[in-house]
């Protein structure tokens, strides 16, 4: 398939998401550019997390295509799909750390399975990854022994274990206090700048959206499709959709001059 946008790392073309006969969202078309921080926004229940499940390859689209650097994910064979999935790291909402393994083992597992590195070197990499997320010295703890915020950081360390090109975050700041949430946002920014990764996140935390995102898509529950795409700061000022503006300004009714 011909490349439509030169910079696009992920292209979503005319995607329809459905559970059985129930159509959740349809006609979704957008690009995620290399090196950008892309947010998926929308009200609760509009299908944000489902869209993320489609992008990470956990759920097959009802219709439409998802392309990773011009390779159609669902038209590829099993082997290519696994390779594509390995190029991305996912941070799940509650960390999703494997509870029977220590934090260190959680991060070491992908390294042991997919690289030929020696055990000693893997240990060192685990140490460095933990230091990156500010959890140096926590390698021998079980996930149940640390707090929710730390579990999220540990999940992040696991997501970047294989130095992925794309990082997916599902509600990174959900359940965190404002300071931890700010620290996580800063960490995400720093990791993007230094790792050069592309970041896709689902969130409805306005401060995070404005601090991080340089591109976004807005999903709507009523019309069951996307209402807008672009930089959220620009959308907040210039979008012609009232709902997008309401969402981004956190208000139920808008001042008169905006409502026309």
């Amino acid at each position: 398939m011909a490349k439509t946008t030169p910079n696009a790392l992920i292209e979503v073309q005319d995607l329809t998401m459905a559970y059985g006969d129930f159509i959740l969202q349809q006609n979704l078309t957008f690009n995620i550019n290399k090196g950008s921080i892309f947010t998926i926004m929308g009200e609760s229940g509009c299908g944000k997390s489902t869209l993320l499940r489609h992008l990470t390859g956990l759920k097959r689209p009802a219709a439409g295509n998802i392309l990773f650097s011009d390779v159609d994910f669902w038209l590829s064979d099993e082997k290519t799909r696994v390779q594509l999935m390995q190029q991305s790291g996912v941070l799940y909402q509650s960390g999703a750390l494997w509870s029977s393994m220590t934090i260190g083992e959680n991060i070491a597992l992908p390294l042991q399975q997919f690289t030929d590195l020696s055990a000693k070197l893997i240990d060192e990499i685990v140490g460095v990854k933990l230091a990156l997320v500010g959890l140096k010295g926590f390698a021998n703890y079980l996930p149940s022994a640390i707090s929710g915020g730390m579990r999220k950081r540990a999940g992040l360390a696991r997501a970047i274990a294989l130095d992925p090109e794309i990082l997916f975050f599902d509600e990174p700041s959900a359940g965190l206090d404002p300071i931890s949430s700010k620290m996580l946002d800063d960490l995400i920014l720093e990791l993007r700048d230094s790792l050069g990764a592309t970041i896709v996140m689902v969130t409805h935390e306005l401060p995070s959206i404005f601090a991080l995102a340089d591109d976004s898509v807005f999903l709507d529950t009523e019309t069951r499709t996307m209402l807008a795409t672009g930089n959220p700061k620009t959308l907040a000022r210039e979008s012609d959709s009232i709902r997008v503006k309401q969402f981004l300004s956190r208000s139920i009714s808008l001042p008169d001059e905006l409502q026309e």
């Binding site: 230091a131 021998n140 703890y141 700048d193 230094s194």
Partner: peptide, 24 residues
Amino acid sequence: PSGIRKLLHLTQKKTLIPPDDKYS
């Protein structure tokens, strides 16, 4: 390279101190 310089700084930042009840 500038990326790795930042990462190196990040690893040297102050981190949380582990509590005592380590899994052993």
